[in-house]
Each structure stands twice: as C-alpha cells, then as structure tokens.
Simulated scan of single mutants.
Amino acid sequence: MYQYELPRYLPTADELPCSDDTPVDNELQELIPSLLKSILQILWVDRLDWFFGIDMGIYYHPEQPPIVPDGFLSLNVERFYDEDLRPSYVLWEEEVAPILVLEVVSNTIGGEYTTKLVRYAQMGVLYYVIYNPKRRRKAKLEIYKLVNGSYELQAANPLWMPEIGLGIGNERVNYGGLTRDWLYWYDESNQRYTSPSEQIELERQKATVESQRADSESQRANLESQRADLENQRADRLAAQLRALGIEPEVP
C-alpha cells in the first residue's frame, strides 16, 4: 500500500484532472503498452478483477500532481469503473497500488531511473519495468522488484512474476508490419503469448488446413465412389456375358 499521510478531504476522480496534458514524444510509448494490454484482453477476457492503464495519471496525494507512467497493471480492482471508464487512477479510491508499472524511455529525460523509481517504491509498486530502446551496450529492458522497500534489478529475461501469473520480457518479432524489439507476456515455461494479429493469423492457417483436409476427404470420397461405379459396371458386363452363354449369374 502507498505510504502517505493524506489530508482529511480527499477529492474524487471526477474532481481531479484526468491527464497531465503532456503528449508522448515517442510512438513506442503508446505502441508497447497497447500491445501488452491487447494480449491481456484476450488472456483474461473472462476476468473482471484487473485494470491496465495507458498514459493515465496515478494520483497518490491530493496536493501533488499525478505521476503518469506509460503503462501500469493493477489486480483485484474493478476492470470497468463505470460506462464512462476511469478518468484517472486515484489510489485513495482504488485502495490498491499498481502491481506493475512500465516506463518507455523517450528522447526527453523523464526521471525513469531517479525520481520515478523512488516514487513507485513509495507507492508500493511491486514490479517496475523500464524499457530503453536507445541503449546499445546495456540491456534495453530492466525489470526491478520491490524487496524490503527498495528496488532490486532482476537478471531473468523473460522474468516470471508469480504474483501476477505472467512473465514479461522482450523479443524481436514482427508486429504491425514492423520487425523490432517488442515487449510481451510469457507463461511459466517462457513461452511467449501471441499478439491478437498473430492469433488471427494462426486461426486463419488452422482454417486453411481444415479446408484442405476437408477437400482431401472429399476427393478421397469421390475416388471411392468412382471405384465403386467401375466395380458395378464390371459386374454388369460379366453378368451380361454369362447370360449370353446361357448361364444365369447368382445374385448375392
């Protein structure tokens, strides 16, 4: 749980600004969390106890501006606030801190390794994920886990997160027509969960195989029917020949 002394009056989400009005300056800041969310919408389609926010303000104190990660995941909360959805994520209303926060480092310094790291630890965010596409020598993906109030860098990639029931990691894959490094969810065996477009393609391939198999079965049935017709024709010719010789063929 977040560690702050809150004032007596606490504004509601409707009374707070719904955004910091700062646009993202890198397309990846939108595409990467959107990919992760789209996969969750398929994996957890029957679950209503999770929420994944993208570029949404998290209010941790009513007298402080919100912190706006590129993406975050919360568990044991209402998936849909109401039909108008959440304008922001207010900790004193939700009473649950995000279990995972994602920051995609852009061209503008955003305090991902300093102020945000400290703030997320204070909020009690268990996993802090930083993806820095500009890195060349160091790892682009860093995954931190909160241990005794401080973040510790985890070595595994993908990293299995038992508290979430998912792993997270990066992999070079073609997504949306672009082959590059993307972040994905993984199962406990480090098998990557496919994106919606990949699942559509897999279903299309499966349908093609089923259609080909059906065609093959139909062709085989036609061949069997043709062979049966030939057998009947041969039997009719033989019967005619026997009758010409004055022999009545036996009828089976």
Rank of each mutant, 00 (worst) to 15 (best):
residue 178 L to M: 03
residue 127 Y to W: 12
residue 8 R to I: 01
residue 41 Q to I: 07
residue 202 L to C: 11
residue 100 L to D: 03
residue 85 L to M: 14
residue 113 Y to H: 00
residue 146 L to K: 09
residue 205 Q to H: 10
residue 149 G to I: 04
residue 68 V to T: 10
residue 250 E to I: 12
residue 61 H to T: 05
residue 236 D to Q: 02
residue 68 V to H: 13
residue 226 Q to G: 11
residue 162 P to F: 13
residue 165 G to A: 08
residue 170 N to E: 09
residue 117 L to D: 12
residue 158 P to Y: 06
residue 36 L to I: 01
residue 172 R to N: 05
residue 41 Q to R: 11
residue 25 D to E: 02
residue 81 Y to N: 10
residue 66 P to I: 08
residue 143 I to Y: 12
residue 128 Y to M: 00
residue 106 S to L: 15
residue 65 P to V: 03
residue 45 V to Q: 12
residue 49 D to E: 03
residue 242 L to W: 08
residue 230 L to N: 11
residue 6 L to E: 02
residue 189 S to G: 14
residue 93 E to F: 06
residue 67 I to K: 00
residue 111 G to M: 06
residue 43 L to Q: 10
residue 183 L to W: 02
residue 94 E to H: 00
residue 18 C to A: 13
residue 82 D to I: 05
residue 52 F to N: 06
residue 67 I to P: 00
residue 1 M to F: 07
residue 136 R to D: 05
residue 95 E to W: 10
residue 84 D to P: 11
residue 217 E to D: 15
residue 210 E to F: 09
residue 88 S to P: 02
residue 195 S to H: 08
residue 127 Y to T: 14
residue 147 V to L: 13
residue 46 D to I: 02
residue 44 W to D: 00
residue 127 Y to N: 14
residue 205 Q to W: 14
residue 136 R to H: 05
residue 216 S to Y: 12
residue 240 A to D: 15
residue 240 A to P: 01
residue 2 Y to F: 09
residue 158 P to F: 10
residue 94 E to V: 07
residue 246 G to A: 15
residue 130 I to Q: 02
residue 205 Q to N: 15
residue 61 H to K: 08
residue 211 S to K: 07
residue 192 R to H: 03
residue 115 T to D: 08
residue 206 K to Y: 11
residue 194 T to E: 10
residue 157 N to I: 01
residue 221 A to S: 10
residue 80 F to H: 04
residue 152 E to V: 05
residue 180 R to L: 04
residue 58 I to K: 09
residue 207 A to S: 05
residue 198 E to L: 07
residue 109 I to T: 11
residue 220 R to D: 15
residue 125 V to T: 04
residue 234 R to S: 04
residue 7 P to K: 09
residue 128 Y to F: 06
residue 59 Y to L: 11
residue 12 T to G: 08
residue 155 A to T: 05
residue 150 S to G: 01
residue 204 R to Y: 14
residue 143 I to R: 07
residue 167 G to S: 00
residue 75 L to S: 10
residue 120 Y to N: 03
residue 57 G to R: 02
residue 224 E to M: 14
residue 186 Y to R: 08
residue 192 R to A: 08
residue 177 G to D: 06
residue 147 V to R: 11
residue 247 I to E: 14
residue 124 G to M: 04
residue 157 N to E: 14
residue 5 E to D: 10
residue 214 A to H: 03
residue 227 R to N: 12
residue 217 E to R: 13
residue 37 K to Q: 11
residue 221 A to W: 01
residue 151 Y to N: 05
residue 243 R to W: 12
residue 46 D to S: 02
residue 20 D to P: 10
residue 160 W to I: 14
residue 227 R to L: 12
